[in-house]
Design a protein around this nucleic acid. Sequence first.
DNA 1: ACATCCCTCAACAAACGGTTGAAGGTTCGG
DNA 2: CCGAACCTTCAACCGTTTGTTGAGGGATGT
Lengths: 243, 243
Amino acid sequence: MAKSERLARPVSITGRSTRSIGEVITFLRDEFPELSVSKIRFLETQGLIDPQRSQSGYREFTDDDLRRIQYVLREQRDHFLPLKVIKAKLQAWEAGTKSGPAAESGPPADIYFAEPTEALDASELATACGLDPDVIGDLISLGILRPRTSSRGTWIFDEVDRSVGHAAARLLDRGLDLRHLRSIKLGADREYDVLIQLAGPLLRHNNPESRQRATDILADTAHAASQLQEGVLKGRLRAELRP
Amino acid sequence: MAKSERLARPVSITGRSTRSIGEVITFLRDEFPELSVSKIRFLETQGLIDPQRSQSGYREFTDDDLRRIQYVLREQRDHFLPLKVIKAKLQAWEAGTKSGPAAESGPPADIYFAEPTEALDASELATACGLDPDVIGDLISLGILRPRTSSRGTWIFDEVDRSVGHAAARLLDRGLDLRHLRSIKLGADREYDVLIQLAGPLLRHNNPESRQRATDILADTAHAASQLQEGVLKGRLRAELRP
DNA sequence: ACATCCCTCAACAAACGGTTGAAGGTTCGG
DNA sequence: CCGAACCTTCAACCGTTTGTTGAGGGATGT
């Protein structure tokens, strides 16, 4: 009985069981023809994956492990990220759900609100985000993008605009339309109002120390608010997906 | 005359003249303290820059050259791009036409929607989050925390609840009250509705592959939506903080 | 039993991103 | 005109990243 259970190993990604390292290769060969056994083992030595082991020491890859490998390979292929960075991203996302005593507070204010380091014009933004140039005007009129205006009257976008534009492009690709983006923007506006109401008095104070303090509070609170909303959404979706 | 012109070499970036390689270093040292002469020369051998030369063979860097170096260094520092890719981007930009970038993808679905790995009861959650036990009931009745219920009727929280609880605790500490949290929660609800409307048909399909596909889309879209909202908020706050 | 898979561990290696040093020319102030 | 402080090229060297290869041996499936 136990023996026949061990032998049964459905090959489908939807199956309940696990796959050996060789099966992983054949599984991903369509998308990643270059993938090798040694590379997967290498990813393990680098701490990017950590599959369970069988009694005899064989690696056993779950569906989750498979998707994780897929993600790593895509980040390498599509965004040229070094494995260290991919690992950090994976860990950051895990921390979002599994955070231990760390993450007492958000990123420091100077990271959250650093001075802009990029200056893109509209066409640069469009190509950087894979966004139709026409849509950029829409996003601006919705208040989703908030470019500065140069002396010559053209728009100047910074790196926050770029990340916003990128997220918007992803959503539009997925079939959402501007109406949906607008409703997300309204959510951000409400958070903004609350935060300003909270830190406003400190911000208007002329004392630079109060200002700095207000900035810190704002950064941390904004981060927490975003975390909260993402967490609530995640929780509801998880509940929905749970069989 | 010609001689005095060669000698006059304004140091400002706005000046019309050019800078020697050493002057470039001192110029960029604020933003890139590690920058070396050899690195700039190396960038030239790799074809990323191509400064003019003086009669005697010295490199002469224009303001454009400076901005180009700045761009290269920022792409390295902020986006970890290999020099080859940066070079390709520069060339594409010079060619006037630009290829569409690969869509940036979010975390893999298994990280966004992994099966719960933690099971906390209410008091464990309270201590883990630094949250008053009384408040937990409030958060549940607001729908912010969504615990499962054990067979004995007690609440079971998972790691998403913990991160939500943590964020809520931070916000309450900062002076927000439950009313504010509720409005954030409503924002999440609206995003949830949109996403379910989008992926619902796929989710209800029995084909496990469609289900998986729907889960992936949902994870990516949820992530993009959160990114968008956080980005919009960040942008508004930045604008507010800008002097 | 025997092919085929899997394991570890160590050695190797190609590409990337520079640094260092030798040998020598240029510029500038005194 | 000299010396200090620049600048030049070129070749050799270096650490890190990202794996591959091979030896030696165990596990699995038919």
